[in-house]
Design a protein around this nucleic acid. Structure first.
Length: 585
RNA sequence: GCUCUUGUAGUUCAAUGGAUAGAACUGCGGACUUCUAAGCCGUUAAUGUUGGUUCGAUUCCAACCGAGAGCACCA
């Protein structure tokens, strides 16, 4: 079925046609049909009359009245209770038991499409930090939105297992006081931590050398370059052994985190694989009669972006090693070989926006079929009050350490609850993840996020746990209803005056889920769903505090059904955001 | 310097070319002691500055001021 807002739009357009407005003019008209912020003014509204009044120089109030009259006749009475002109707006009131949909949503750009999503992209042997948590959270939500919109999806992570950061880590090893941690007794977490320290140490030594002067710096840089080359061409057995083991540990650690976060990738790509593929494509094009690449300073192979209003970037460096840009070309080709996608969406921090414009342009010129399907979404950077994160200097919050803190905070709150130790562990983990994910998803991810750790740890207010808590309350009611009789008061239909205002508000908020999901899918905007869920949970909590579902050992079925429906929507909403529901907390 | 993004209560965030700019946190005050108080109810408080377009701008445009990012061999 059509979205309710789309249905209204169609009728508004037929109103225009009836008034002899030409198709071309209708094309140009942009009016909105959206849900009313103030629920008392009706379920939906349109600003149609205001837009028309400008175009045709008529009194908007008169237009609104005419439109309302027309729509009142045209619209299905089994869906619309009332259509009313109010000032220059037309408000729509739906019937009280309007069906709430939680299943798949039809969206022309998603339904039936094969869509590949790439996100998270942590680098082996470097710390998985809170920025990766952010990318993972956003990517997971975006991919689930695609799925809800009817797409067939695949999830990919692309990991940098070559490049200078690894050279610095491997080079940094020689300054470490602790031995290589390959003992069985050492946990994966500690092994990975060791690698992170090697990276920080390497960078510190590099900075030290820089201070000592030009000569020392260039000596050290040469050492790192040699290491980089060894990793790239795998020419040193000792390096290979340590590198392979370190990479393996890292990947195991990532896998543990993905399990906790609720992401299941379909395939992993590595830079060590994309590099030769990209290099080959670039070199082949270089020998073609009209190459898109040229030779720049130091014989580097460059793509001159200025012709397309973009930066010029190096694709193969002076040493003949493909850069990130070439690897991106190889990646596109490899992704397409693995699965013939209709759309490929890459989610990274927006510091890479410019690079992606260049690489996507180059891919389009080289492989038009693939290039035209590539999309890039940049999310904001995460920062903390008065401090910038840098994995180079170790000034970061590690993903797992932050999760642990959140878990501890959540665990503490469950001290009084009757649960087994194991249950408390599991639940506090899911609550911690919910808190982190929700704090990211409730806002527009394209903007920077200033993360307030203290606030997040408090687990109060507009948060993931707030929504999980509403569900838990409903579970609790359900449990209590077991074996109880049905109350006599159940004959009151929803929405009649006998219903409390809280119950009516709650009921009238439910159907909006479908509308919000459509908007969220359409605009890549998970925050619409997040904000909606807060609104719904808040209405539920108001309802809950003033209405009794169980009274005198009898269940009010009408209200209980309302609770169950609310739970269904909240659950579907959280799931779409990639957040788990907990049975109790 | 050039380019892009961004500026909403004390703080962290929503929203929108139009109906009263919406939450949360913090502060202050309150209720119940009943299905989980991670909850509920009340209360104070905001569109950086100056112009422009418009019947109407917080939203679009320009300049300025502030913040962040990018600008060839890192990713």
């Amino acid at each position: 079925m059509l979205q309710i807002a789309e249905l209204i739009k169609i009728h508004c357009i037929s109103f225009l046609k009836k008034n002899d407005i030409s198709e071309e003019e209708i094309e140009k008209i942009k009016f909105t049909v959206d849900v009313n912020k103030d629920i008392d003014r009706g379920d939906l509204y349109t600003n149609f009359a205001l837009v028309m009044s400008k175009l045709f120089n008529q009194n908007p109030i008169v237009i609104a009245i005419n439109l309302a009259e027309y729509l009142h006749q045209q619209l299905d009475k089994t869906i619309f209770k009332k259509v009313e002109a109010a000032d220059a707006y037309v408000n729509f009131y739906l019937i009280d038991n309007f069906e709430t949909k939680t299943e798949k949503i039809n969206h022309p750009e998603f339904t039936g499409k094969k869509i590949a999503y790439e996100y998270t992209d942590p680098n082996p042997m470097k710390e998985f930090h809170i920025g990766h948590l952010m990318s993972n959270t956003i990517g997971e939500a975006i991919s689930r939105l695609g799925e809800l919109g009817g797409a067939e999806i695949k999830r990919y992570s692309y990991q940098g297992d070559t490049g200078r950061h690894l050279a610095v880590t491997m080079w940094g090893l020689r300054f470490m006081e602790n031995p290589w941690p390959d003992a069985e007794s050492i946990t994966i977490t500690d092994k990975v931590k060791f690698l992170g320290q090697a990276y920080v140490t390497g960078n510190a030594k590099l900075a030290e050398a820089k201070e000592k002067g030009e000569q020392e710096y260039s000596r050290v840089m040469t050492e790192i370059e040699i290491m980089n080359q060894k990793i790239y061409d795998r020419s040193d057995d000792e390096v290979n052994t340590l590198y392979d083991q370190g990479k393996e540990w890292s990947l195991q650690k990532f896998e543990q985190l993905y399990e906790v976060l609720g992401t299941k990738f379909d395939h992993y790509f590595f830079e060590s694989q994309t590099a030769p593929v990209g290099l080959k494509i670039v070199e082949e094009n270089l020998h073609a009669t009209s190459s898109i690449f040229t030779t720049g300073e130091n014989d580097a192979i460059i793509f001159q972006g200025e012709a397309y209003d973009l930066h010029t970037r190096v694709f193969i460096n002076a040493k003949g090693i493909p850069t990130y840009e070439s690897k991106e070309i190889g990646l596109a080709q490899m992704k397409y070989n693995v699965w013939n996608f209709d759309r490929s969406i890459v989610i990274t921090a927006n510091e890479q926006n410019e690079v992606f414009k260049v690489t996507n342009k180059a891919i389009t010129l080289l492989m038009p079929d693939i290039g035209s399907k590539m999309e890039h979404l940049g999310h904001g950077m995460m920062s903390f009050v008065g401090q910038k994160m840098s994995s180079r200097t170790g000034k970061i919050i590690a993903g797992d350490e932050f999760l642990e803190e959140m878990m501890a905070s959540s665990y503490e709150k469950m001290a009084e609850r009757e649960m087994t130790e194991q249950e408390k562990q599991n639940v506090s983990k899911d609550i911690a993840v919910a808190a982190i994910k929700f704090s990211i998803l409730k806002q527009n991810f394209r903007k920077n996020i200033i993360f307030d750790k203290e606030k997040a740890l408090s687990l109060e207010g507009d948060s993931g746990p707030y929504i999980q808590y509403a569900i838990v309350r409903i579970n609790s009611i359900e449990k209590k209803t077991e074996g109880l009789g049905i109350s006599d008061v159940t004959t009151v239909p929803l929405g009649e005056n006998e219903m409390s205002p809280e119950a009516q508000n709650l009921n009238r908020t439910l159907w909006r889920f479908d509308h919000m999901c459509y908007k969220a899918i359409d605009e890549f905007a998970p925050q619409y769903i997040a904000q909606y869920l807060i609104d719904l949970a808040s209405r539920f909590n108001s309802f809950y505090s003033k209405n009794k579902i169980i009274e005198d050992e009898k269940v009010n079925k009408e209200l209980f059904d309302l609770c169950v429906k609310t739970r269904e929507v909240l659950t579907q909403g959280l799931t779409t955001l990639g957040i788990r529901v907990v049975p109790k907390m």
